[in-house]
């Protein structure tokens, strides 16, 4: 891990909001999961079906958190201090994205583990297919990777939209855009947030490797554009 990424992680560690998100979001994930799992109207047949809503909540909140903090660095101009320490901007911005991917991974892992632990006993009492140990591990890892990817995507949005409120708006607005595009063009399964669900389901309409590859492609594309824009932007 580079010194820059460690510094970015230190930035996150020394903020109260990071700890609040780390503690609260897994709880929110569990609550939304239980809400779905205990709903007598729901007829989910697989344990992962319980996780869909909570996974969507976690993904969007993590992306919005990353977008807000990175966008905030431009409004507060603290990014200027980063550029004073390391004038080459691409490594600085890449370190931010990496740090948020790391935080996303931790949040994804915590949420997936908690969700699995909470969902299993509920599922046992109902006519629901439980994961085998292999699938359970793979699912936790897949969710971890997918949430990390969304967090990195959020950080890239923060660089592109250098204002916390507007950046969060862009992340939330994207959900609506994705729904509209999915409905109008029938490509919903190939868009980022839906791909997270597909990855968590270990495949669906889109096979797991393709879904994961596409998700990585979205992240790489967004990060690439963010680095290009951030590299040239004047801090006036």
């Amino acid at each position: 891990m580079s010194a820059l990424t460690r510094a970015e992680l230190m930035k996150l560690r020394t903020l109260r909001s990071t700890w609040v998100v780390l503690l609260v979001l897994p709880v929110v994930a569990v609550v939304t999961l239980m809400d779905a799992a205990l709903d007598p109207v729901e007829h989910n047949t697989r344990i992962v079906d319980f996780m869909d809503v909570s996974l969507a909540v976690v993904s969007v909140v993590v992306a919005a958190f990353a977008a807000a903090l990175v966008g905030g660095e431009f409004v507060r101009r603290t990014v200027g201090l980063d550029y004073l320490a390391v004038p080459r901007r691409v490594p600085v911005l890449a370190a931010k994205v990496s740090a948020f991917a790391g935080v996303g991974a931790v949040l994804g892992l915590l949420s997936a583990l908690l969700a699995t632990v909470v969902a299993a006993p509920i599922a046992l009492g109902r006519d629901v297919v439980l994961d085998g140990p292999g699938d359970a591990v793979l699912r936790v890892l897949a969710v971890t990777a997918a949430v990390a990817a969304l967090s990195a995507l959020g950080a890239a949005v923060g660089v592109l939209v250098p204002h916390p409120a507007v950046a969060v708006g862009a992340v939330i607005g994207w959900q609506i855009v994705e729904m509209l595009l999915g409905t109008a063009l029938g490509i919903g399964d190939y868009l980022p947030i839906r791909l997270v669900t597909t990855v968590a389901h270990l495949g669906g309409t889109v096979p797991l490797p393709v879904a994961f590859g596409l998700l990585c492609l979205y992240v790489a594309g967004a990060v690439g554009v963010a680095l290009l824009v951030g590299r040239r932007r004047d801090l006036a």
């Binding site: 903020l15 909001s17 507060r76 101009r77 603290t78 201090l81």
Partner: peptide, 15 residues
């Protein structure tokens, strides 16, 4: 003013 209000001065410098 280019500093995060939620962070201590010492941590600002450590970073």
């Amino acid at each position: 003013g280019a500093m995060h209000p939620g962070r201590s001065g010492r941590n600002h410098l450590r970073i």
